[in-house]
Each structure stands twice: as C-alpha cells, then as structure tokens.
Amino acid sequence: MPERNDSTVTEFILCWLTDQPELKLPLFPLFLGIYLLTVLGNLGMIILIVLSSHLHTPMYFFLSSLSFIDLCYSTAITPKMMVNFVAKKNVISYQECMTQLYFFLAFVISECHMLAAMAYDRYVAICNPLLYNVTMSYQVCSWMIGWVYGVGVIGASIHTFCMLRVVFCKANTINHYFCDLFPLMELACSSTFINEVFLLYLSAFNILVPTLAILGSYIFIIVSILRIKSTEGRFKAFSTCSSHFSAVAVFFGSLAFVYLQPFSLRSKDKGKVSSVFYTTVVPMLNPMIYSLRNRDVKLALSKLFHKMKFHV
C-alpha cells in the first residue's frame, strides 16, 4: 500500500447510525448478538466442512469460502461500530481508516463474485449433473476461488490507492459508522473526480456482472426445475432457490442502492441504513440460508455431535 498523502487530518470521527443518542444502549446488545451469531455461524460452518469428509465437495468448498469472507468483512466493520454505542466520541486514525476501507472493499467485492460462482455451481449441478464432476473439478474450483479473491484484492487496491491521493485538510467527521468511499470523498479538500470515475465503473462491474451471472444461472435452473415431473421435487428445488435468491437480492440490492447512484443524488442517512444490511445482517443470515437448512449439513452436525458424545 502506498504511503499516505500530506493530509493535515490525522484522525477521523465516525458518526452513529441515527441522530437519536437515546437508542445507543438499547441497540448495543442487538448488534452484539448479531455479531456473535455471525462469528459462531460462519466459523462453525468452516470447522464443520473441514471435519466432515462427505462435505468435501465443490458446493461446500464455496460455502466455506463464503463463510470466511462473511466473517472477515463483518469483523472489519462491526466491532468498531459497536464502540460507537458506548464511547462519547468514536475516533479512528487515518491509517486505521484506510486499512478498514481496504479490507472491507476486498472482502465485499469478493463476496459479490463468490455468490456468482456459487450460482454457477448450482447451475451445473442441476442442469448438467452428469458432467458435474468434470466441469467442477478441483482445478476449476481453485481457479474460480483465485479469481474471486484476485478481483477483490485488485478492486480494493485501486480504490484505496485513489483515496490515499485525496487530501483531507479540515473536516474530519465521517457521516457514517465506518470508513466508506462516499463519506470519505465528502470530506476531501482536493478533487475526487478520479475516485468517482473508478467507483462508478468498478461498482458497475462488481455488482452488475455477478448479478447478471446469477440471474442467468437461475433462469436455466428454473427451466430445468419446471421439467421435473414430481411436485414434491419441484417444491423442494424452488424452496432452496428462493432462499438463495432472497439473500442475493438483499445483498446486491443494498449494494446497488449505495454505490450505483450519482454522487450528487445519494441520500446519506438511507445509505447508512442500507449499509447495515450487507455489513451486519447478511453475514449473519448466510450460514442459515445456505447451510443450516441443508440436509447434508444437518447430517454432518449429527455425526459430529455423536462423535463428541462418544469420546466424552
């Protein structure tokens, strides 16, 4: 990461979600509970997949990677946000702010493409089951995972490098609960035109391309499901797809609302509320939506508890 610029601002002050301070204490246990569930759910899912040999398949390989991404970018945001519930002034240094920005962007961009990779995996499994083992080989899955993290690192590096070139000279109060691109650009004393251009084009690529890939996969999946003669089989498949699609809609919808608007038209308060969904709620829900309703995961949990009980 390049050296910091000549900004006179050495630290920033993070704002709260709303302008009602009386809600701080009541909401602290709520967000603490959400974060604990996020850590337990995602970390537990990773451990379960590693320990259960029959879950060593491409689908669960992607699920473990998704859990790792959710755990990381939630940890980059939520603990610092909770400090603001109990502290009079939530201060973050310039270096910490840029670090938080980098890791948040790296993992949130990776999640966009990971969801697309998972949708493609389900498309192959449902539409071309006979070729699944060949199409989704270990080498192919490794390349896909490499692409997911590679795009995240490159995108985060570009955004962070552009932000490091911005000069912050007077105002240091960020109208957000974490260091995000738009709130930081609002404090800039220098031109942010390059930042806005990269933000628009990279956001379009990292949101629209995975969204189109997911929609395309689901179109083919739905067509294949409609060909199933069994009513029970159709209902089960549609139920699984609707849960997945609901989580994708919340994640990409909130991202699009924040990052695909022109800089001059965006709503600051609505942007903060939308950010809550993809920074805190979605990472908590993903283990439940993608895994805990899965029969294989329930079986793996049952076997793991049985082994633990046997050893005890």
Results as ranks from 00 to 15, higher is better:
residue 218 Y to G: 08
residue 160 T to E: 10
residue 20 Q to L: 14
residue 250 V to R: 06
residue 92 I to K: 04
residue 107 F to M: 04
residue 154 I to V: 15
residue 269 D to A: 13
residue 146 G to F: 11
residue 226 L to C: 15
residue 312 V to P: 07
residue 133 N to W: 11
residue 179 C to T: 06
residue 177 Y to L: 02
residue 189 C to H: 06
residue 150 G to H: 03
residue 66 L to D: 08
residue 76 A to P: 11
residue 144 M to D: 12
residue 132 Y to T: 14
residue 28 F to P: 05
residue 100 Q to E: 14
residue 112 C to E: 09
residue 141 C to H: 07
residue 227 R to E: 14
residue 267 S to A: 10
residue 310 F to K: 08
residue 70 D to E: 08
residue 225 I to E: 05
residue 161 F to M: 15
residue 269 D to L: 13
residue 156 A to R: 06
residue 295 R to G: 01
residue 173 T to G: 03
residue 50 V to F: 09
residue 243 S to M: 10
residue 272 K to L: 13
residue 247 A to G: 13
residue 257 F to A: 15
residue 207 I to H: 00
residue 66 L to R: 08
residue 198 F to I: 12
residue 109 I to D: 04
residue 240 T to A: 15
residue 105 L to W: 12
residue 248 V to T: 10
residue 185 M to T: 04
residue 57 T to G: 02
residue 199 L to A: 05
residue 95 Q to A: 12
residue 147 W to S: 07
residue 178 F to A: 09
residue 222 I to A: 09
residue 260 L to R: 11
residue 283 P to R: 02
residue 41 G to H: 01
residue 182 F to N: 12
residue 100 Q to N: 02
residue 208 L to N: 03
residue 107 F to H: 11
residue 22 E to S: 14
residue 25 L to C: 03
residue 170 K to Q: 14
residue 40 L to R: 08
residue 48 L to M: 04
residue 66 L to W: 10
residue 106 A to H: 06
residue 29 P to D: 01
residue 219 I to V: 13
residue 67 S to N: 03
residue 281 V to A: 08
residue 134 V to W: 14
residue 49 I to A: 14
residue 73 Y to C: 10
residue 109 I to Q: 03
residue 62 F to N: 09
residue 286 N to R: 08
residue 258 V to E: 01
residue 229 K to V: 12
residue 138 Y to G: 06
residue 23 L to C: 07
residue 251 F to R: 00
residue 246 S to A: 15
residue 102 Y to K: 11
residue 151 V to T: 09
residue 207 I to E: 01
residue 17 L to K: 06
residue 290 Y to T: 04
residue 270 K to V: 12
residue 20 Q to T: 07
residue 112 C to M: 07
residue 159 H to V: 07
residue 197 V to I: 15
residue 144 M to Y: 07
residue 261 Q to V: 05
residue 19 D to W: 08
residue 86 V to W: 10
residue 132 Y to A: 11
residue 77 I to S: 04
residue 75 T to H: 05
residue 222 I to C: 07
residue 17 L to P: 01
residue 95 Q to C: 04
residue 65 S to L: 14
residue 4 R to V: 12
residue 49 I to E: 00
residue 298 K to Y: 12
residue 26 P to I: 06
residue 182 F to T: 09
residue 209 V to Q: 03
residue 178 F to I: 03
residue 282 V to D: 05
residue 13 I to M: 04
residue 285 L to P: 04
